[in-house]
Design a protein around this nucleic acid. Sequence first.
RNA 1: GUGGCCGUAGCUCAUCAGGUAGAGCACCGGAUUGUGACUCCGGAGGUGGCGGGUUCGAGACCCGUCGGCCACCCCA
Length: 428
Amino acid sequence: MSNIRAIRGMNDILPDATAIWQYVEATVRELVASYGYAEIRMPIVEQTDLFKRSIGEVTDIVEKEMYSFDDRNGESLTLRPEGTAGCVRAAIQNGLLNTTQRLWYAGPMFRYERPQKGRQRQFHQIGVEAFGVATPDMDAEVILLSARLWRLLGISADVQLQLNSIGSLEARSAFREALVDYLQQHRESLDEDSQRRLDSNPLRILDSKNPATQALLDAAPALGDYLDAESRADYARVKELLDAAGVTYTENPRLVRGLDYYNKTVFEWVTDRLGAQGTVCAGGRYDGLVEQLGGKPVPGMGFAMGIERLVLLLEACEQLPPVVAAADVYVVAYGDAAQREAVAASEQLRDVFAGLRIVQHTGGGSFKSQMKKADKSGARVALIWGEDEVAAGTVSLKTLRSRNDAQQGQQSVAREQLEETLRALLAD
RNA sequence: GUGGCCGUAGCUCAUCAGGUAGAGCACCGGAUUGUGACUCCGGAGGUGGCGGGUUCGAGACCCGUCGGCCACCCCA
C-alpha cells in the first residue's frame, strides 16, 4: 500500500464517529447559548508572532510543536496550536473589547507531537472566552458552565475539578526565585527533565510526574504563600461561588498551566479513564494577554476542551447517544416505469415531510436485493413500486423491523393515499 | 525527540521446524414466477506495510525503513 495516506496524527473522523461528535457539538451549542455566549470563528492560520507573544517563547508549544511555514511573501505563518491567541487577536482587531464579551469557538488545532491515546497532531477544541470582567464571579461562571456540560453529557462522576491560583505576575516571579533557590540546593536529586526546566521554566517542575521530584517539592516553598492579596481574595471568592453552586473541586497547589499567559485562577478537569492524557478541559484567567497583544488592558477568562478526549471519555463511560438509522423510508422500484414514478413521488414526499429521511434505491437489482438494502438502511417503512403498482396506479407500503407482528405487513394504496398512509405508519 | 509492543483479506484474528495463506464478521449472488430480517449454498477479495539480506525456498529468521498503538516529554 504505497498509496497516499493521511498525515501522521491527523485522523479521519468516520461516519460512525461523526454522530457522536455532532451530539457533543449540539450539546455544547445549547449549553453556551444558555449562558449567553456567542460563537466566533477565526482563521486556522495566523502570524507566527501571535503565538510566540501569547503562549510564550520558552514553552514546548512554541519551541518545538508549531506547524510553521513561510508564506509566499516570506512572512512566517503558523497553524494555530490553540484558540485563545487567535480569539484575542480577533477581538482586538474588530473592536469587540469595549464591552463585556462572552465568546465561544470550535475547530481544529495543530501541534507537532508524538501521537498517543487522546493526543493527535490535528485535534479539535471547543473554547470559551469571556472578556472585560476582572472579578471572580466571571471565573466561577466559566467553571460552572463547564461543570454543567459534564452533567449534560452524563459524565460528571468521571471528571474531577482541580483548582489553583497562580497569582499575579509579580507574585509568580517572587515565588519563582524562591523555588529556584530551593531547588538549586537539591539539583542533584532532581530528574533530568526538571534540571533542564530549572533554567528554562522552573514553575513547570511543580507538576512533574517524577515521584522523587514530587517528594522534593513537599519541602519546597509554596506558591500559595506568595500570592498577592487580591489573588488570594479572588481565589477565595471563586471557591465560595463554586461551593454555593454545589460544584466540588480539589485544590491543587501544584497546578500550573503550560501557557505563559495565565494568572490568578487556573483549573483543569481531569479523568482517570483515558490513560496518560487525563486532562479533558483546562483554562484560567489571563488578564494581561489582551494588552500584551496590543489591546487595551482588558481582562480575560476562559478554557478549552479537547473533543477527541471527550468522545473517548463518553465511550469509556458508555454515555454515547443512541444510534440512529440512516433512513426513515426506503424506496424500492423495479423497472424503468416504476423508477420514474418512485423518484418523482419521493421528491413530493420530501416536500411534504420536512426532515423525513427518504432513501431512494439506486443501482437496480432484484426486488430481493433492493429489499435487503431497505432492511439494512434501518428504515421503518419501505415504499415498493413494481409493474403491478404502475399498472394499478398504486404503491405498496411495507413495515420493516416492527416490534410486534401485528404491525408487520404490507398494504397497497392508491397513489393519492400515499401521504396519509405513510403518515399513519410513521405515527405508530 | 526517547522507549516498549505491533504491522497477514474492508474489520477481528489464525496458521507455520521456514516449503509460495485460512476462519468469523462484513460485502455480492442464489435457495422456482416481484419482497428484507433467521437459515442453507455459492462467490469475490490478500504481490502477508515497504526495501534489502540469509536460504534450494520466507509472511514466518536478520537488518533497514515506513506506519500503528501505548508510555515519557508536553498538553486539550
